[in-house]
Design a protein around this nucleic acid. Structure first.
Lengths: 178, 178
DNA sequence: CGCGACATGTAAGCAGTTACATGATTAT
DNA sequence: ATAATCATGTAACTGCTTACATGTCGCG
């Protein structure tokens, strides 16, 4: 499905960007639903350039250090928009190891099960707080044609996801005690 | 991390089972959070048998058709339980293509964006109804030491996930009209 | 001068999907 | 008979992670 390709094309389309900075984008809002390591990003950039979807311009930061800045081409933009407009089915199962583990919870001792749920709960609550802080940066909902609209709705989605997970973990803990 | 290995060991531990039936388990409750195709299952079974974690017994269904039924060994059970009891960090980002797409929603026409959100909404609502029906099969919450406890909490988790996604999709649609 | 961030790449291996391939059994 | 399901496998490929590998820049 080449999803990484389109994630990268979308980022490059916003403004010319380097592989390093694409990597950093995957640590921000987008990173809640898509991410990649530099070892995947650099070869993909090469491939996209070979396919004529992006163009390279080398910048120099400091004395000698090269920074490869890529921009999207006409054909890259067409490809990206055609992907973006495609109608798709809902995503296949996103795999989650913790829930796989919990599927076999009947083998765990009650006290240890509770510890595991609690450890997850704390980590999820921390994550939720971080997301809520990010959301507070927005005074109002961005217009749908603004670039930050995407950032906004992804934070919201991530918050709803964490809240649902927390609710579930608490329910599970409720099933233990008594 | 060999998660498939442990998913399969856990299933085999419940009762001796064939590759084909493991595949079917991934279409049930567990399939909401972990799944695999037969092309991945059969080689993995071979590997687990080579590692001495499972044992094979061939059954004949009908006249000649062979069914390979695997059971867990002592060392397989130990390996599984040690994995199950391990404390782990929260799962890394589960990737979702639809939300990646929505990150770039500012490029979409309002009417088309609404169509896309609506199409997702309908599919998610259908899925939710199916999950709720599965939940209704349970008269009460199973005890935590029962095998079906895992099934129950995974259905609940899947329901909460769908509800959160539906809530998000509706919010997004709300941002469009006006 | 040392440390953390900047910056880019490759190689090996593990995980997963799609397609190829075959044949038996059961229900209609 | 014929279609759906049962049943098992392999091959080629894509996707992704971990580790290897190198060097610069800015700050204290």
């Amino acid at each position: 499905m080449r999803s990484l390709k389109y994630a990268m094309l979308g980022l490059i389309d916003r403004a010319p960007i380097s592989g390093y900075d694409i990597m950093k984008e995957f640590n921000k809002e987008l990173g809640n639903f898509w991410t990649a390591k530099h070892s995947q990003i650099y070869p993909e950039l090469k491939k996209l350039a070979d396919e004529g979807l992006i163009e390279l311009k080398v910048e120099i930061s400091g004395e000698v250090m090269e920074k490869k800045v890529y921009s999207i081409t006409k054909s890259g933009r067409e490809d990206f928009l055609s992907w973006l407009n495609r109608e798709e089915d809902i995503d296949p199962t996103p795999k989650e190891v913790f829930r796989l583990r919990m599927y076999f919870a009947n083998h765990l001792e009650a006290t240890h099960l509770e510890e595991m749920l609690n450890s997850q709960l704390m980590q999820r609550e921390e994550k939720l707080i971080r997301l809520q802080k990010a959301m507070e940066e927005y005074e109002s909902v961005p217009e749908i044609n603004q670039v930050i609209f995407g950032d906004y709705i992804l934070i919201e989605s991530a918050i709803l996801r964490e809240e649902a997970t927390i609710k579930w973990l608490k329910k599970c803990m409720g099933y233990i005690k008594k």
